[in-house]
Design a binder for these strands. Sequence first.
DNA 1: GTAGGGTTAG
Length: 574
Amino acid sequence: MAYVDSLLSKCTCFSQLKQLQAHLITTGSFQFYTHRAKFLDFCAVSSAGDFHYAVHIFRNISSPYTNEWNGILRGIAQSNNPINALTFYVSMSRSPCKPDALTCSFTLKACARALARHETLQVHAHVIRFGFDADVLLRTTLIDAYSKCGDLGCAYQVFDEMCVRDIASWNALIAGLAQGNRPNDALLLFKKLRGGNMEPNEVTVLGVLSACSQLGANREAGIVHEYIKSKNLDRSVIVCNAVIDMYAKCGLVGRAYDVFNEMKCLRTRVTWNTMIMGFALYGDGAEALELFERMGQAGIEPDSVSYLAAICACNHAGMVEEGMKLFDDMDRCGVSKNVKHYGSMVDLLGRAGRLDEAFKIVQSMPTVPDVVLWQTLLGASKTYSNVEMAEIVSKKLVEMGSNHCGDFVLLSNVYAAQGRWHDVRRVREAMKGQDVKKVPGCSYIEVGGTIYKFMNGDQNHPRWKEIYWKLDEILLRIREYGYVPETNNVFHDIGPEEKENALCYHSEKLAVAFGLISTPDRTCISVNKNLRICGDCHVVIKLISKIYEREIIVRDRTRFHRFKGGACSCKEYW
DNA sequence: GTAGGGTTAG
């Protein structure tokens, strides 16, 4: 039996694997289910194997044993169609051969990858019925599956009901909360973990770092970094990469660069990519491109993510020619392009008003343009009031079934700018007929060690009345500087007055107003938004920075905006 | 005797 293991591990390609199978068959060993199971497992999972071939062999087994089922389930869970594992799982349940804990583990893994919440629930029921629910590993898998399917309530419940937990159980939930848009709860859970006697490891801090990155929690960021150093967890390059990313996303690109320069472990390609992206976040095109050059000199070939980061940096700095050169270099260096590279180029050219060239890029691309790419082009069409382009692009978006509120708003704005009110009304009707999706905007701000979250029109903050009074004062004062609200950014069937209100209570404005009333004069205000900052907020915050003599930093989904003395560091490149 | 938790991206 040992020799089968040894030979399997030496197989580097499919033909060798088939030779081994031929050998096992001719010597009669393939009838021994243990050999067959090992073979199936390896064949389904290894890069030398072939998943379809594994399925083929499996189907020819008249009555497979549990470990043979498990091998094939493990393979399907890792394949491109993990949901197929459910079919196999059901067949297995109906066969004389009963599932064991591993069967459930692989099936749950498949559920997690397929984002299948309902199926996770069903397998969970089986886990209980089969009496496996005391299994720590299986429960951790359950936490992970529920988290990935977006059901953090169930994930929490599985965690709470565990009598024995190990560090992986904690890690699964911390990572789940961090990735499930509940970064504050992830930090709280980490604090709770530190209060006990369990020792956090690399995986734990990766979840925590991710939570800090999302929150832009620069105070917390320093604390977590100190903790990592004290526990020597920064010997792991993966942890260092996440620290660099966190500092960059928390507005501390200088500290990110310090970590990059002072690493004790070897930098990987991801390290370089993260740092280049870090500079791109600030619109620092020169630093990003210099690093991109140095990366090649250091013997690390840029990959498609490196190019994307560099092009993105050009994008945020308005460096059109440099971006186009990088885009062309990719073909020469044999680096493959994906829809994000095309999307970024469309953005770069679109912002520069070169809409025809942007459209040519779309037409020339071998992959199908996605919704985001068309939205980018629609945004550029709006900026340059190009009605024809906006119409073509909107049609594409409708064909693709996009029901995003912003698409309708942009098109209607293009029409409104031309005074084509009939068309505005038509778009509005079309919008009503659909189930239009709107991702809720939210902004975070840290004051006195607490991170506050604001939603649009939010009145949940204990000082909400003061915040709204401050906003009213702001609006009065900035009107003296000629501010007129861009009411057509809002597209609801409401009167002009409410339109203005909806705009002026955007989450980023609420957060800035709260910053103004709760922090000392002349100190810097940092706000973090989950979506892109809106045009009106951008204008308003520029004026606030001037009138109230405050430096205001807003991190939005794509980059940092540093407002000072009435201007923004982005120079209107978003 | 094959299981669980993880870094970069328009």
